[in-house]
Design a protein around this nucleic acid. Structure first.
Lengths: 197, 197
DNA sequence: CAAATAAGAAACTTCAAGTATCTTATTTGG
DNA sequence: CCAAATAAGATACTTGAAGTTTCTTATTTG
């Protein structure tokens, strides 16, 4: 028997970037459906409708392949940072956004990668382009202009504190944060430190 | 040729708890010297001077074995919580203690376990007996008595905040925190939130 | 001291990583 | 347009580690 997919493969043999994109997509689907530890080179090759040799021509090993598949999809700096008119809602929005975007799948993959590549710290996967926080810079700048926050309060620590606590929560529990947790971080920790009084 | 160790094994065949303790010690040494991903059942058996069958009689798989080896050694609640006479030094002491005790080896193992046992969150390994902070409770109680902190300031979040930030740092970088980092957590985040003003 | 129990040795099965070889589709350059 | 180069795809292979099985033998226990 020959399925239509098999026929596609016979007719159109993909190459180069097109093939590569299909493979990386297959990796992401495997990660989502079966997790890092159940992802095998064979399962990826089969899902992508290609063969293992093709994978090894592009990536040196499984870790590199997975890394390639998730690196593309890491941080997405919003061009338009939403403006709610007050710092509280702005920061809550940032933390809510961290719940999105298959964070759990990514973290599972990161843990596998860190365990496998003993030397690389988690940070090198989570912050592939260095640890910045452009979004928080913008939000705080606006808050300073509004008069909610004084300029001296804007320190490096205050750029990362809410997302650090949120990430800690996500890493520990591998589940989206509740609204209560988000509110607690913002209202009990962050705002008392940065708002003028 | 027969080494003295081989002869020991022939003469004294260990059993029960004694043998089990030797195996778990071997696991910890393998984790320390070679890391989770290079720890194999054979390497553990060889180091412990026993055989793989003995391991499988006691633990269902590699993950259970490693779990058994690190569970024993998890949190050690200090009976004597040191009193420096001020909250700042007390909390710095708590964070400094988190640098100790092969935290990096443990984290590497935790990551491997989480990746392998897809369902268990990191928290279940890091807080095997639930998330409490007896030490911080004691320190804050003393600070309240001293008048440094008001009783209402002692909330659940304030019991965990410094160690949460420290753990986040340790998890990300897999390296001991610098004194600067410790001081920053305590002076720029924690004390401004809890000290009376 | 005999029977039961558990340790240890070693061979085996299974599965996945990674390699090698060969055929064939597609591209490219003359 | 065709021949040569290139890369895809199939398949078989090697290696290493998890986990199993079987057998022998040391140690305990009654």
């Amino acid at each position: 028997m020959s399925t239509s997919q098999e026929q596609d493969q016979l007719k159109n043999r993909r190459r180069g970037k097109e093939l590569e994109a299909a493979i990386l997509q297959a990796v992401r689907e495997e990660l989502t459906e079966r997790g890092y530890s159940n992802l095998t080179m064979d399962s990826v090759a089969e899902r992508a409708g290609t063969s293992k040799a093709v994978l090894y021509r592009r990536w040196a090993n499984r870790a590199e392949l997975v890394l390639g598949a998730i690196r593309e999809r890491v941080p997405l700096p919003l061009e338009e940072v939403p403006d709610n008119g007050n710092l509280r809602d702005d920061v809550c929005g940032v933390l809510r956004a961290m719940n999105q975007n298959n964070i759990q799948v990514m973290l599972n993959a990161f843990y596998g990668l860190v365990a496998e590549m003993g030397d690389m710290p988690l940070a090198s996967f989570i912050f592939p382009h260095g640890r910045q926080n452009r979004t928080m810079s913008i939000l705080l700048e606006r808050a300073v202009e509004r008069g909610e926050v004084s300029a001296e309060a804007v320190t490096p620590r205050m750029l990362t504190l809410p997302s650090d606590l949120a990430r800690h929560e996500l890493m520990l529990y591998n589940a989206p944060m509740s609204e209560e947790t988000i509110a607690n971080i913002v209202d009990e920790v962050y705002l008392p430190l940065v708002l003028k009084r």
